[in-house]
Amino acid sequence: MVPAMTSIITVSNLSKRYASGFQALRNIDLDIRQGEIFALLGPNGAGKTTLISTICGIVRPSEGTVTVGGHDIATDYRAARGMIGLVPQELTTDSFESVWATVTFSRGLFGKPPDPGLVTQILKDLSLFDKKDAKIMTLSGGMKRRVMIAKALSHEPRVLFLDEPTAGVDVELRRDMWQLVGRLRARGATIILTTHYIEEAEEMADRVGVISKGEIILVEEKAALMAKLGKKQLTIDLQNRIDAVPESLAPFHLGLAEGGGALVYTYDTQAEGTGITVLLQALADAGLRLKDLHTRQSSLEEIFVNLVSDR
């Protein structure tokens, strides 16, 4: 995994203040590693799209620098932008053009000679080939989303930005999209995505960054993040319902669930000891009979909500 540690995008001290005075980004430092899938999470208005747009050259930074593959986005913009494919959040397409024409246009725009074979392959990968001569305005929303991905891939970018790729997309397209992301990564592409569907980040991403109010508040390996911040819950189903948690169990801060039929114990996997053995002993001492036990790890979503609300 040596190449995975090489940075492909380096953002240093990046700030963006809009003309309105709104500070969208504050001193962002971020490294994206070559070949990784990086999920950028954050509530609406946190600065996700501004950050992506700045790296792609659509928004001018107020301060700081960005390099892509070692090329500065301001002084060496041709080389930097040539490496990037962008699928923006909004469905913006040339309504009157055919799918084929718009994808061919994108390839040319990024300075690549025409390659009908490659365009054919991209359209087939995205199940768009049947629609290649259709005018874009006749396509469904999901199909338009595919067209935008095809456009972004048309110049064989090494870095792909997907801004909310699965917002308002049906299950089938979402599955296709993740398969595509998997294939691209297997070919060595780096993928940066923003999403509201945290389970997707949880499933796909290698690393997760959380942005809130224009600041990166955390960047972590997904697994490490889950382990570090993950709380586990032990649910104990009881043989007989109880009205209240017995006094002797007060130190464990148990919650009563399922109308008194279950007890919930929350513990930290990173702590010295989980306290489970002691708890079980205490339960037996209190005369409670157990029917079943199960544990659950908190999801990235819960972690994320906690992180953002803590600030």
């Binding site: 792609c56 050259g57 659509i58 913009y77 041709r78 080389a79 930097a80 932008r81 040539g82 990037i84 962008l86 923006p88 909004e90 913006t92 397409t93 040339d94 309504s95 994108s106 725009l109 990024f110 300075g111 456009k151």
Partner: peptide, 12 residues
Amino acid sequence: TGTIYEVLSAPI
């Protein structure tokens, strides 16, 4: 329409 994003992000 918003499609200008592509021209602005192109190496051009």
